[in-house]
Simulated scan of single mutants.
Amino acid sequence: MRKITILLFMLIAGIYTRGQAQPEAKAKSILAEVSKKYRSYDVVKAEFVFTIDNPEAKVKESQKGILYVKANANKYKMSMDDKDLISDGKSQWSYLKADKEVQVSNVDNSSDALNPAHIFTMYEKGFKSIYTGESKSGGKVYQMVDLAPNDIKKPYFKVRLSIDKIAKQISNVVIFDKNGNKYTYNVKSFMPNVKVPESIFIFDAKKYPGVELVDLR
Rank of each mutant, 00 (worst) to 15 (best):
P116N: 04
G139N: 03
K100V: 05
L147H: 07
P149F: 03
S110H: 08
K140W: 03
S135W: 11
G139P: 01
G133N: 12
D112I: 01
V104A: 09
G126C: 07
M144G: 04
E134W: 07
Y142G: 04
I152P: 01
L85I: 10
S87G: 10
D151T: 04
N150W: 02
K125H: 14
L96S: 07
I119H: 06
S129F: 09
N106E: 15
K136P: 00
V141P: 01
K136E: 15
L85N: 09
S137A: 15
A98G: 10
D112M: 03
Y142M: 08
E134D: 15
D146Q: 12
S110V: 00
D88Q: 10
D108I: 02
L85H: 11
I130P: 00
Q143R: 08
Y123M: 13
I119K: 05
I119V: 14
M144A: 13
T132C: 12
Y142C: 03
V145M: 05
L96N: 11
L147M: 09
P149R: 08
G139M: 01
E101G: 12
V141M: 02
D146H: 06
A148D: 00
F157Q: 02
L147D: 03
G89D: 14
Y142N: 02
N115G: 02
S135Q: 15
K153P: 05
D88L: 10
Y131M: 12
A113F: 02
S91E: 14
G139L: 07
Q92I: 12
S137C: 05
Q143V: 01
P116F: 06
E124A: 14
S105K: 08
S137Q: 15
E124P: 04
D146S: 12
N115E: 02
S111F: 01
Q92N: 07
Q143Y: 04
S111E: 03
E124W: 03
V104Q: 12
A148R: 08
K90F: 10
N109T: 13
I130L: 11
P155E: 03
I152S: 13
D88Y: 11
D146W: 08
V102Y: 06
K90M: 14
G126R: 03
P155I: 01
A98C: 05
N106S: 15
L114W: 01
S105E: 14
I86P: 00
F157T: 00
F120I: 07
Y131W: 13
L85Q: 12
F120S: 08
Y95F: 14
I130M: 12
S91D: 13
K128P: 05
G89I: 06
D99P: 06
G133E: 10
L114S: 03
Y142I: 10
L85T: 08
L85P: 00
Y123E: 06
A117F: 00
K125I: 11
K140D: 04
L147G: 05
K128S: 14
D99F: 10
K100S: 14
S91A: 13
N109R: 11
P155G: 00
Y156F: 13
D88A: 07
Y131I: 12
F127E: 13
I152L: 11
T121E: 12
L85M: 15
K158W: 00
V141G: 05
A117V: 05
H118P: 02
N150P: 02
D151Q: 06
K90E: 15
